[in-house]
Design a protein around this nucleic acid. Structure first.
Lengths: 244, 244
DNA sequence: AGAATAGTGTCTTTAAGACACTATTCT
DNA sequence: AGAATAGTGTCTTAAAGACACTATTCT
């Protein structure tokens, strides 16, 4: 350990991206078909190695997104999700991957980039159920990303980011229902979001193009932290201890 | 980008450890005095480079803890805290550091290890206030670790882990007060913890060695997730949006 | 008129916040 | 007796859960 002139071992550093969006009221994740070995042809998260030793991690993440999915979304807010570095997770050697999470409204249809044979949106439920197999440990990364997104809806005003610039209250409710995978009472939901000051603000008396009574439109409000938080109904397990 | 035989750049990977404990009802963090350049002599978090390319990250974290603080705490549960990889954060080159967080009850007094001139507990408030300067970006890492610990107290039964095997309710209250840095109403606290099923369980009719009425002892219960969570009083800022 | 969707009101229950009092040990 | 700490009870208020009804547009 205290050898002279010892230099630390080098590892390969990669970034992986969990990009979540809502399409047809279902949560989707951006996946690419790998164009190179290993796992050539398999589905995987967009991502890749750092390009040079001084590249910033988030810069690498944005670059990979552009390269593999031709998505030049500079405004996309990437957030640290976790580190995946178990030895043996990548057959090419020791690869430590830093995962980032982004959540956004209807993103454009991606197109194939240089390193991937194709990029497309896949339903998250099909990934998590195992119907779609992913390369490496990417199933775990997607799981962690979805869990993180679900938790964020509780305390942050993130749900509005899933909608367009303006939206109706039932649009917003459908975001919660799609991400949480449950259904909510519309009456209690209306009350809750309207009394959470700064969550949503009216966006003019516009109307909407459907049958039935037209809905009022809203925009995201200035309040970014929901207090009190939205409550996610608890699944029966572990709500009560097995005491008594 | 699509060069043949291109190999990714190597980076140096380090681990850093935020070990939090409670001593004299104040939150303390384990710091070492650096024995080598850079920042020789300065205070820093325990941590260091991976030893070999196949070392597991958590294994490296435990090894550094043993080396730098002579703390062989195999049972210590380390949890991923974040990644700190801004280019330039380490004068030796591109170093990406993975930070881990551990929270534990009265840990032993550390002793100096091989790579550090000394290891000791420092009060977290003195670090966060800037009275104690830390090497690298370790101030930020400590901040993130403390924030994470504060948030964990809300939804998890972690606070019991700060106490010994048995504890009184006011012991537990003091954990919350020390970590959150506020004071709580003992009557409401009693009610809350007692009605949170599975949080604490009675540990016999034992008594305690102080003046005044002896207190009942409890042990940590089986319930790991607090539902509903403990509520942390909100600081006045951002509780309300600036609307209306 | 009737279908379809939007929006509001009320009652109940749970739990937090703010209080004051009783209980048990010690010297 | 009095000091010191432990523990309980009550009232009020905020907010979630569970309901049924009214409102506005379309065909």
């Amino acid at each position: 350990m205290a050898e002279d002139r010892w230099t630390p071992p080098a590892v390969m550093l990669a970034v992986d991206l969990v990009i979540l969006t809502l399409r047809e009221w279902r949560l989707h994740v951006l996946l690419v078909e790998r164009g190179v070995e290993p796992f050539k042809g398999a589905l995987a998260l967009p991502g890749g190695f750092l390009q040079h030793a001084e590249e910033d991690l988030t810069a690498a993440a944005h670059r990979e997104l552009a390269e593999e999915a031709a998505m030049n979304v500079e405004t996309l807010h990437l957030e640290h999700l976790g580190v995946y570095g178990t030895p043996g997770r990548d057959p090419r050697g020791r690869v430590v991957s830093v995962a980032y999470l982004a959540i956004a409204p209807g993103l454009p249809e991606p197109t194939a980039g240089t390193d991937a044979a194709g990029a497309r949106w896949q339903r998250v439920d099909q990934v998590l159920s195992g119907d779609l197999k992913l390369a490496f440990d990417h199933w775990q990364i997607v799981w962690d990303g979805v869990e993180s997104a679900r938790a964020k809806l509780e305390r942050s005003a993130l749900a509005t980011a899933f909608c367009g610039p303006t939206f109706t209250i039932s649009d917003l409710q459908q975001v919660y229902e799609a991400v949480w995978g449950i259904s909510l009472d519309p009456r209690n939901f209306y009350r809750k979001v309207q009394k959470t000051s700064g969550f949503i603000v009216a966006a003019g008396p516009e109307r909407k193009v459907t049958t039935g009574r037209p809905a009022r439109l809203f925009r995201a409000g200035p309040c970014k932290v929901l207090n009190p938080p939205m409550v996610r109904p608890v699944e029966p397990s572990n709500a009560k201890g097995p005491e008594e």
